[in-house]
Design a protein around this nucleic acid. Structure first.
Lengths: 348, 348
DNA sequence: TGTTAGCACTCGTTTGTCTGGAGTGCTAAC
DNA sequence: GTTAGCACTCCAGACAAACGAGTGCTAACA
């Protein structure tokens, strides 16, 4: 993309347009800007500048004789070049935020994160569950349930607990169950799901002797649980916030958006795909850049969270293109800090 | 409520109005009804009858010179008096239904039920998790996680599995954990959550001796898990189906409805409240009868499901007042039958 | 040279008026 | 008891006029 350089006044005008449009949702005209403090120019002057900005593709008129609204490119420019420099948000503004409470169940925590974010941003939010495959196995326990079934409980680092019911052919006495538990834990704990390969498995089967089949079942069940996991673990909140932004609810758009949020799966997939590029941690998708079709009229801001121990996942805020990017980014950063406090401090 | 008796022709007209309005969503006039087969009367005759039906409060005109639409009372009459008798739905109509697959995780099954119901009815659906309190404990297992914490896993009849992480003060060796497990299972298995009373607890504490505190922690944790449970376990699907019915989406109604569905809690509470009256199994709430404020413009049909072993919960379909009550009731019954097949057959 | 006032022009939004159609209730005839 | 006819009501859509917000351009000004 070619580098655009704007003089100071143009920058101020662009910012003014973006901020004003963000608040009102209406195209903003030269008069409005002229009346703002800081910019003591007549409407005519502003108009000349706006014509230039329009030529650069940063703003457009929805129709002749309407005010201007920012284009995707305009927002992109704002986000990339200008957002960080204008620090007019006092730090105190974030003090009214809702705090995340520490809870033991990861699922509950993630849902809570989605809710808190939705409440403090007024946009829709989503949180993907952690990527369990990279996460180490802490502890595994099987126990007989009595009716030809066994219960396998797996605990990963970060206290992610999963259980699975397994049907087995043989009946095991208490003694055997104990020794199988011992065997399983000796070989598996400390490994990530990815690291449980054929070599490990065949070694275990050897040691298990006549119970090799059962061991094999257990491993399969564990693998299946975590494979299935990815489909299920997306949490969303604040879906109805989109009704506050008329540009998102015209026609059938509201319905499509909400059903995308309800289905969750496609969301998670799209987000996870962009994993590799997250070196900057916070990523902003504007309009067409959003990798979900039904959200091409939205902007999405994502961040990667970490619950200690390398358990990480994605967290996203979905709003209109005129969302308050600065506030969203601040809030996300703030949330990360809170998570760090909650998870790092008591454990280190 | 006074008993209303209608002659045959009035009944036919009322049914015609209800069915027509259900399909079109538009007030239906005398001409339309006159043109239907079966009723070979002129519009004028129909008009006279309609005037009578209006006097009885079964139908209304939204405004002068508009057709008639059914009132809540009209629907109620239809549902109570006439629905069962008119069996014009061929049984084959239900053959196209999506089937429920058997899955082990109860949560997954419930979500699936909500989705299947939404897909086959075109309305919004909700499913409350089973009422665990009445459900018997099958199996309980604690195990040391190593860092001063224990993992408690509880299995109820019907294979509902819950886990909870507990912080404890003492460090327990493998031996002790085993004997505590033995103790816990001996005393608790076979009891429902409600039946775990002080007497049982104090007897266990006695036997546990120096580990009484830990036993107490475990019990507390189990109790807390199931208390918290009720808030979380409501599954919904097909929320966006409401956009198909303009009478539900005017103004802010759509937003309110969707957010009620998103919050889930209030839904569950409202439904569970009507527990006691479910002798007939299927219950129909029309308009104002719905115990949720934001759904006063809807109708809700609920049923009580049972997953073998007495594990039961509620299941609801939410749609416009002009919903196809017959089809919804049939679909619900069908779903129940499917559940019975899945859960009764392989176990008995 | 940059800024501003003035002005004609455009176009979307709102308001009011009108008309056609759908539907009704009533009356009188069958 | 049923139906044809008719006057009446009221909504929905079309159309025009008035309005207002905003623009681009030109000319004057510092």
């Amino acid at each position: 993309m070619e580098q655009i350089e704007l003089d100071d006044r143009k920058k101020k005008i662009l910012i003014a347009i973006i901020q004003n449009y963000q608040e009102t949702g209406e195209p903003v005209g030269s008069r409005t800007i002229s009346k703002m403090t800081e910019l003591n120019y007549s409407p005519a002057t502003i108009r000349n500048e706006m014509a230039d900005l329009e030529e650069l593709g940063l703003i457009v008129q929805p129709h002749t004789s309407a005010g201007r609204i920012p284009t995707d490119k305009g927002y992109r420019y704002y986000v990339d070049q200008m957002m960080e420099k204008t620090q007019n948000l006092p730090a105190a503004a974030s003090s009214q935020e809702v705090l995340i409470k520490r809870v033991d169940r990861v699922e509950e925590l993630l849902l809570q994160m989605a809710q808190v974010l939705a409440a403090s941003t007024n946009y829709a939010t989503m949180v993907t569950g952690p990527h369990l495959k990279k996460n180490k196995l802490k502890f595994l326990q099987i126990s007989a349930m009595g009716d030809g079934r066994m219960l396998a409980v797996v605990v990963l680092e970060g206290n992610v607990v999963r259980n699975n019911i397994i049907e087995i052919d043989e009946t095991l006495d208490q003694e055997t169950v104990s020794s199988l538990n011992m065997l399983l834990n000796t070989h598996l704990s400390g490994l990530s799901i990815e690291e449980i390969n054929l070599a490990v498995i065949s070694r275990m089967k050897e040691e298990a002797g006549q119970h090799a089949a059962t061991v094999s079942r257990v491993i399969d069940a564990v693998a299946e649980t975590f494979a299935r996991e990815n489909d299920f673990s997306v949490y969303t909140s604040g879906a109805t916030n989109i009704f506050k932004y008329p540009e998102l609810t015209g026609g059938d758009r509201a319905s499509e958006l909400i059903s995308t949020l309800e289905e969750k799966k496609s969301l998670g997939n799209a987000l996870v795909q962009y994993e590799g590029e997250s070196r900057k941690n916070i990523q902003i998708f504007i309009g067409d850049e959003v990798p979900v079709d039904s959200m091409k009229d939205c902007s999405v801001v994502t961040a990667t969270y970490e619950l200690g121990d390398g358990v990480q996942g994605k967290l996203g805020v979905i709003g209109p293109k005129r969302m308050d990017y600065r506030k969203v980014v601040e809030t996300l950063k703030d949330t990360m800090t809170q998570l760090d406090h909650i998870f790092k401090k008591p454990e280190e």
